[in-house]
């Protein structure tokens, strides 16, 4: 048999930046904002005009001016610098939560969905139990027991965040289990971890990534909530939630003290939501 020519032209499979922006402008804006926030966190010491914890009591509660673009807080600290440094604990907490939850949730979901039966029942009941805990309340209890701090807050959030991934991944895996390509893989003698993580994982990963991006906005809000209640990072380290809490005492006279970190929380949460919305469209395999 001679080599038949391939009649189908190959579509370029690489996702170029301009194509990405055209297909989903909102995702592009979200991605740009997220990148911006990451850069700000990374280069905070070089960008921030002032030391974020240096107090200047003579200039406390100053309105926005050329010297202090967003004004100063009740200790005379520059709000812009504190905002810039505040990206760090927020993103750090996000990273810890994501790194702890997604791999665990996805692994449990795949194993439960693929093997079914008793394995599935036990794993999913554990998932249900973990899911039954109220997120913020458990986080409060955790922090109360282990002490305030970024890592403790993140641990508490991680404990309640993974079940969503396990459930979603399980249901996707169940629908894949009967597919011909997994049957074909089984006939080739491909079993165990190789089948689960080489064949099932690539198909459930896009869904989990979209879910993760959607969760990020919510985690930022909860992180800020912990900070607001004084259970996040310890003062004087700048943290957005704690900054909002500081600002509430003077909200009628010096509204910008609470409004600027509030806007930062809003903007970051919004950026991740835009990004996740676009990712959902792009990561659909049918769009490949």
């Amino acid at each position: 048999m001679t080599n038949l020519p391939l009649s189908v032209p190959v579509a370029p499979n690489r996702l170029s930046l301009s194509k990405f922006a055209r297909r989903s402008p909102s995702a592009a804006i979200g991605a740009a904002l997220v990148v911006l926030i990451l850069l700000v966190a990374l280069f905070a010491p070089w960008i921030a005009p002032y030391d974020p914890i240096a107090q200047d009591i003579a200039n406390r509660l100053m309105p926005p001016s050329a010297a202090h673009w967003f004004g100063t807080d009740s200790f005379g600290r520059d709000l812009l610098s504190r905002l810039i440094y505040g990206t760090r604990p927020t993103l750090m907490l996000l990273a810890i939560v994501i790194l702890l939850t997604t791999p665990v949730g996805i692994a449990i979901g795949i194993v439960a969905g693929f093997y079914g039966g008793m394995v599935e029942r036990i794993l999913m009941r554990i998932t249900d139990i973990a899911m039954a805990f109220p997120k913020l309340v458990l986080a409060l209890a955790f922090v109360a027991v282990l002490g305030a701090g970024l890592v403790n807050g993140a641990l508490a959030l991680a404990l309640t965040a993974w079940p969503a991934y396990a459930r979603q991944t399980r249901s996707e895996t169940v629908s894949l289990r009967k597919s011909d390509y997994l049957a074909a893989a089984e006939m080739m003698g491909i079993t165990g971890p190789r089948l689960l993580f080489g064949h099932v994982l690539p198909l459930v990963l896009p869904g989990a990534i979209v879910r993760m991006a959607l969760d990020l906005g919510g985690i930022i809000l909860i992180a800020a909530g912990l900070g607001f209640l004084g259970l996040g990072v310890r003062p004087p380290t700048p943290e957005w939630g704690a900054m909002v809490a500081d600002g509430t005492q003077v909200i009628f006279d010096q509204w910008w003290v609470a409004a600027t970190p509030g806007a930062a929380i809003l903007l970051t949460s919004f950026a991740f939501n835009l990004l996740s919305d676009g990712l959902r469209d792009l990561m659909d395999p049918r769009n490949g």
């Binding site: 011909d180 390509y181 049957a183 074909a184 080739m188 491909i190 190789r194 395999p285």
Partner: peptide
């Protein structure tokens, strides 16, 4: 071995042809 009915469903959509053919050889 088996050839399935629907060629659109029997090849893993996220694996290149080279991997789809190479993996069974490696596994065995």
């Amino acid at each position: 071995q088996m050839v399935f009915q629907d060629p659109y469903a029997s090849l893993h959509p996220r694996h290149r042809i080279g991997r789809a053919l190479r993996e069974p050889l490696v596994v065995n």
